[in-house]
Amino acid sequence: MARRSKQQEPESLRKELIKLLTNFEYELQQGDLRSKVLSLVPAHDLLRDLGSSLIPKEHASSARDRIIHYLQKYPRTVIDGNELMVVAGIGEWARRVRELRVQFGWTIVNGVTAKEMDKEGEFPLDNIDVSKIGPDDYVLINEEQDRDAAFRWNKANEIRRKNLSVLNKILEYMRFNVGKQITGEELRYVANNKSEWARRVRELRTEYGWPVVTKTTGMPDLPVGMYVLVEDRQAPEHDRVIPDPVRRTVLQRDGYKCQECGWHHEKWNPSDPRHLEAHHVKQHAEGGANTEENLITLCNICHDNIHRRRVKR
Rank of each mutant, 00 (worst) to 15 (best):
R4C: 08
S5E: 09
Q8G: 09
E9T: 12
E9W: 11
S12F: 12
L20E: 12
L21C: 13
T22W: 03
E25V: 12
Y26R: 14
Y26Q: 12
L28E: 10
G31P: 09
D32Q: 13
D49A: 06
S53V: 04
L54Y: 06
L54A: 10
S62G: 07
R64P: 01
D65W: 03
Y70T: 05
L71E: 00
R76H: 01
W106T: 03
V109H: 02
V109L: 04
N110E: 09
G111M: 06
T113L: 05
M117W: 02
E120T: 04
F123D: 01
L125T: 01
V130T: 08
K132L: 14
I133L: 07
L140S: 03
N142W: 11
Q145K: 14
N154C: 09
V166S: 05
V166T: 14
L167A: 15
E172V: 11
G179W: 01
Q181A: 12
I182T: 00
T183M: 03
T183L: 04
E185Q: 13
E186N: 06
A191Y: 02
K194Y: 01
S195A: 10
E196Q: 11
A198V: 03
V201H: 00
Y208D: 13
T214Q: 07
G218S: 03
M219I: 10
M219P: 00
D221H: 12
L222M: 14
P223G: 06
V224R: 01
G225T: 02
Y227R: 02
L229H: 07
E237G: 06
D239K: 10
I242L: 14
V246G: 05
Q252V: 08
R253V: 00
E260Q: 09
G262C: 02
E266L: 14
P273D: 11
H280Q: 03
A285P: 00
G287K: 04
A289R: 11
L295P: 02
I301E: 10
I301H: 09
H307F: 07
V311S: 10
